[in-house]
Design a protein around this nucleic acid. Structure first.
Lengths: 133, 133
DNA sequence: TTCAATACTCACCCTTTGGTAAGTATTGAG
DNA sequence: CTCAATACTTACCAAAGGGTGAGTATTGAA
């Protein structure tokens, strides 16, 4: 039961993308690695507040299989393992940006006591953060 | 147990967007409504091959609560109910487009006996479909 | 000899998600 | 009176997702 091995059959592109990105912590891992370039296992664990070791490693393994991240092992004592984004992972992050901005907009509207029906809060400009967050 | 009522607290914009879009059939519903403009319950059911009535209506209700779609009831016999995208739903669809294109790329690479590590299949141009699919 | 530090690995369990199949409500047609 | 057509609604069940907590392996330092 090491990995999911779903990989289709897909019904559309969104479906194919979701297969890779769905998982409670995956977008956070993407974001964290995009910010820092390279992170050790322990750094990731401390960076993603609330993640369990089991889920973190499970997600990291799946993302490695999906070609999103690379894993570098340094045979030292104590051991050191470094994770970073591949080119493929960076392109996924870029593709997620508009969705992240849409989500930020919704989030702000909700926080403002949000009326979910109208697309923008009528005059309140949407603040754009740097990345997906 | 009528609705999910998650709506935060979120940790990033992606999280906020995922809360709205996660669900086996939601992106398909978005896509179907974007294509046809307006669809009856039965048309949606027949359009999304494999969806159960329970899940379809559950997703539709949640999406209505989230302001993505609107529901129009015609008091006839037999009854008629029509669903369509709101402005908010259309903006979500737009934000999903890059992700859909990324997924299509991955999908094609997989179908081609895909090497998941390199971002593009080296010379094979990515065919862009019209929407998210 | 014991401990610390790191990166896992495993067994167990609870919650969420989604499917199946049957039932409800309405009213015009036969 | 029964049936068809539509849009749900409900009860029940199985699978997937994710959390907890303990255990493993390695070796230098105390």
């Amino acid at each position: 039961m090491a990995s999911k091995v779903r990989r289709g059959p897909y019904i559309c592109g969104i479906d194919a993308a979701m297969d890779v990105v769905s998982g409670k912590w995956k977008s956070l891992i993407l974001w964290e690695l995009d910010n820092h370039g390279t992170r050790r296992f322990g750094e990731l664990r401390r960076g993603l507040t609330g993640v369990s070791e089991k889920m973190l490693i499970q997600h990291l393994r799946e993302m490695e299989e999906d070609g999103l991240i690379s894993r570098e092992v340094y045979r030292e004592v104590p051991p050191r393992v470094e994770y970073s984004l591949t080119e493929h992972g960076r392109s996924l992050n870029a593709a997620l940006r508009p969705l992240g901005e849409w989500g930020t907009g919704r989030w702000e509207r909700l926080a403002a006591g949000g009326d979910l029906a109208s697309p923008w809060p009528a005059g309140a400009p949407l603040l754009q953060t740097g990345g997906n967050s």
